[in-house]
Design a protein around this nucleic acid. Sequence first.
DNA 1: CTGAAAGCGCTTACAG
DNA 2: CTGAAAGCGCTTACAG
Lengths: 339, 339
Amino acid sequence: MKKVSITIKEIARQLNISKSTVSRALRDSSEISEETKKKVIDLAEKLNYYPNPIAISLLKNRTQTIGVIVPDIANRFYSSAIGGVEDIAYSRGYHTMIYQSHELLERERSASRHIASRRVDGLVVAISSQSENVDHFVSLQEQGIPVVLFDRVSDAMQTHKVRIDDYKGAFEATEHLIQRGCRRIAHIAGPKAVSITRFRLEGYKDALKKYGIDFQEEWVLHTEINQAGGTERTYQLMALRERPDAIFGASDRLTMGIHSALRQLGYKMPDDVAVIGFCDLAMSSLLDPPVSSITQPSFEMGQQATSLLLDLIESKNTLVEFETRVLQSNIVINKSSLK
Amino acid sequence: MKKVSITIKEIARQLNISKSTVSRALRDSSEISEETKKKVIDLAEKLNYYPNPIAISLLKNRTQTIGVIVPDIANRFYSSAIGGVEDIAYSRGYHTMIYQSHELLERERSASRHIASRRVDGLVVAISSQSENVDHFVSLQEQGIPVVLFDRVSDAMQTHKVRIDDYKGAFEATEHLIQRGCRRIAHIAGPKAVSITRFRLEGYKDALKKYGIDFQEEWVLHTEINQAGGTERTYQLMALRERPDAIFGASDRLTMGIHSALRQLGYKMPDDVAVIGFCDLAMSSLLDPPVSSITQPSFEMGQQATSLLLDLIESKNTLVEFETRVLQSNIVINKSSLK
DNA sequence: CTGAAAGCGCTTACAG
DNA sequence: CTGAAAGCGCTTACAG
């Protein structure tokens, strides 16, 4: 298996002109005669020539490629965000390399190393829940590879960030439950170290406060973001002497766990327990009953993060003012919370 | 933003030796004295040097990178297969670039072009349902870039292929329904052009034949592979004068559509209609009732396809005997088909 | 054991 | 308008 590629040299040979001229003609340089240009371009087309991007990368020290690291591509929120990343990247002439951290710091580090060694031009990342330490990303920045954070952001990094208004989303979810008459509202939250966990928890607490409902420590449980976590914590909640009459789940995986645990335990939603979560819309409507949810503009988050990243990559001056964009979530009411 | 990278030249300068010697020392060549080697390696470590893979790619005309094209990374079957691809690729020192075709021929072509221009070493692909024409992949092969097909394969290509025994899976699913007493068994199938659609349809037909049940044209409906397709076709089936008493769905998305349509229409599973599908396990158990399914070893398919691909890439001789590996599916019985 | 030189495919000052 | 030369970062015959 041999890769035989047409090079500029071959075109030059066939046309009996120099490589320089071929190169310039191909790039439509104004200093080449129309006639030469035409000859070169025609032959290039005929031979099905396209430039070797590797040679160009070596020359420019640019790869026209960006990296994305997300915890899990199977998660709809992230696959949709990746869609947004690809959308902007392609339209601006960049390619996208996708990495999964599987929520592991070590995998994130290894992806970072790979990105650095591959001379990727920049990186969009949703930090793994295990990564309290973001030195590997800071180190990328120091090597001149810009990093933009989305969804999961970190205060330890100076850069552009795109996140949703987790506080407001959680506030609205909790307020909705209160307005439907719930008073004993539990919250199954993600890992403490993750920024969005804290924002959502604050929103939940403040909504309770606004309506004069006491905050109860035992009604807030933290867990890993997966279905099993939601299920286990629901067992724990429903085993309490004073049971909650509503559960607010901090992610879609968790909410699926909550949903299946409640059904399995024989509770009716929303009559026994009202449920709302941060969810993917397609998913929530499949469940029985369909689940109310705070939905996030994931595609748009990917777009905005990428657009900020490409601006960073293409800006010559180092002195960019970093910004944090906060997008709005939407609340979608379904049967699971309609007491 | 400047990328300042340590090069072999810099090490040579600091040590006052030649680039050649540095290069050889770093590659642990036997012709370099231990002393020099140590000096070089120590300094390289200190300066945090790592070789520029782009330069090496230019030299070797190899990128140590493979591409994967799947219809949709959000689909669990594919995200899991990608896991298998990454697993083998990483362990053999290759990186993976992931592309989505979104079931569009045009996107698949554009990914192929990108792959060719990036000089990717090889490609693993599950063909888009729209791609009856696979010339873009053949052209890749002709350029010396090996292509291995998995899941969705095509007779129009000579190469390694990895697929599951769709015929047998469909046969077993249908036989199971028959053994539970169903006699009017419908099948909602994928697009006609896709190879697995045909295999599954054959399995369904042959199971009916084995038990002396007449095949009824109107009980087999083709559709795009998405939830809406499953829903629409279920409407159509249940509107028939003679209704089916069982539906066999050809994919998980379709089966989710079948499930939600039946519930919405007021049918009980399995009593009114038994349901079985080609499904992802995690998904089927979330539905109410949980759905019986033919499950596929997706991770393993990704692994095997990649392992075959890397063998192709690394084999010097062109004369490889192409093989088609057929993996076995499993049948998982759940409430939806337990009449 | 070590170095100078050529070359991978391209671009771009520098000459003419 | 066109060409010869240098160089991006590396490897590897070829000399010594």
